[in-house]
Design a protein around this nucleic acid. Structure first.
Lengths: 208, 208
DNA sequence: CAGATGACATTTATCAATTTCTGTCAGCCG
DNA sequence: CGGCTGACAGAAATTGATAAATGTCATCTG
């Protein structure tokens, strides 16, 4: 009655399916076990806790996006400006697609996200790391000027400055009409800031 | 037994006090009435609904910050760069102070905020309006270059790009050690983008 | 004996009964 | 007569008893 061996991978697939069917609130590990035709005790052999199972399935979901972006960040044949724009656009597009394509599943993962802070932190660190690579490449070419604090601080600033276009908390805005223009405007402003002439005095005039 | 006439203002003060005492979940309009020594029917004479009362008290709270900032936005004796930096720093400082000074009360208003979407929208529009004034002044002086879309679109981009430092959703991060540097880095990047040489080609190189 | 099972204790969710709160309004009071 | 009251109906929150889920582990099975 067990055609294939019970592997972590199969459990994760079944979990995704159960989550898609029942939603985050009503998906139990008994449901997952039933979908696989095994007892729930067997699931606990692979994932010691329900939270661990949810985190694993969340990680998988996040990694899919991160891997998609990684190869853009690695491009060297293009101007840093172009790579940065492409990467940010791809990030926005990926998130928008996930939110717009299957809203219920997206809502499910939104719930899962704030139960797996460690996984999310790692994901965000990964993305900021990719941005850091892009910024460093741009600085090396003399195209970009990093802010005081270096490429890592610059990447973090870029990431947070664009959070309206990738943070799930802002997902409701992504279907608004002017959002594409707002994205363009923000990216334009940030790219201008990065490509500002290096020799110029950064302007540290204090506020009051 | 009624020393002063029952005015909307007195009700709002009592409501703030009750909210501070009981928190948003357990603050009832009967509590507010009792604090004022009147029946709850009298409160309903001034605020037709509990939601209206909560919105009014929320508006008061938000307006305090907005008014503080308004006079900074109006400064003309200073460089636009300086005004912008001062305004953003004041916004961040005000929010940080509210969140750090009385965390429980801040949490209370956080709950209130997502029950009064209209009031919040108006508040955000007000702040973006102030930023627009600053950007317009900078453009008029030849200090700033707006992004395609004009001063309003630029102001909106600035506002969203700095949301990590004023959106209550990010309040937990405001007590982290490096947050001041992160703020400086972000503002630096944005100001550079605004003050970028007007003659330069904005760089519309497409991603892929 | 590696891997799965299902009975079990403990925690967490569900549901209906009961209480409390919101919002209205006819009447009271100064 | 303008402003306040308090009894009331319907809506929402609380409670406590019941059911279901999580996580453990001695036992079984191939």
């Amino acid at each position: 009655m067990s055609p294939e061996p019970l592997t972590a991978e199969r459990i994760l697939e079944a979990t995704e399916e159960v989550l898609r069917r029942h939603g985050p609130g009503k998906a139990t590990v008994v449901d997952v076990a039933r979908a696989l035709g095994v007892s729930h005790g067997s699931v606990y052999r692979h994932f010691g806790t329900k939270a661990a199972l949810r985190e694993a399935v969340t990680k998988r979901w996040l990694d899919r996006t991160a891997d998609e972006l990684r190869h853009i960040a690695g491009r060297r044949e293009q101007s840093a400006d172009g790579v940065l724009r492409a990467w940010l656009a791809a990030l926005f597009a990926a998130k928008r697609q996930k939110a717009g394509g299957d809203p219920e599943l997206f809502a499910t993962y939104e719930v899962l996200l704030d139960g797996s802070s460690g996984v999310v932190a790692a994901h965000l660190a990964d993305l900021v790391g990719q941005l850091t690579v892009i910024v460093e490449a741009g600085v090396a070419r003399g195209e970009f000027t990093a802010v005081p604090g270096g490429a890592a601080a610059t990447a973090e600033a870029l990431f947070h400055a664009t959070s309206r276009f990738h943070d799930p908390a802002h997902a409701p805005e992504w279907s608004r009409p002017g959002i594409g223009d707002a994205f363009e405007a923000t990216v334009e402003l940030l790219v201008r800031g990065l490509t500002a002439t290096a020799g110029r005095e950064p302007g540290r005039s204090r506020g009051h």
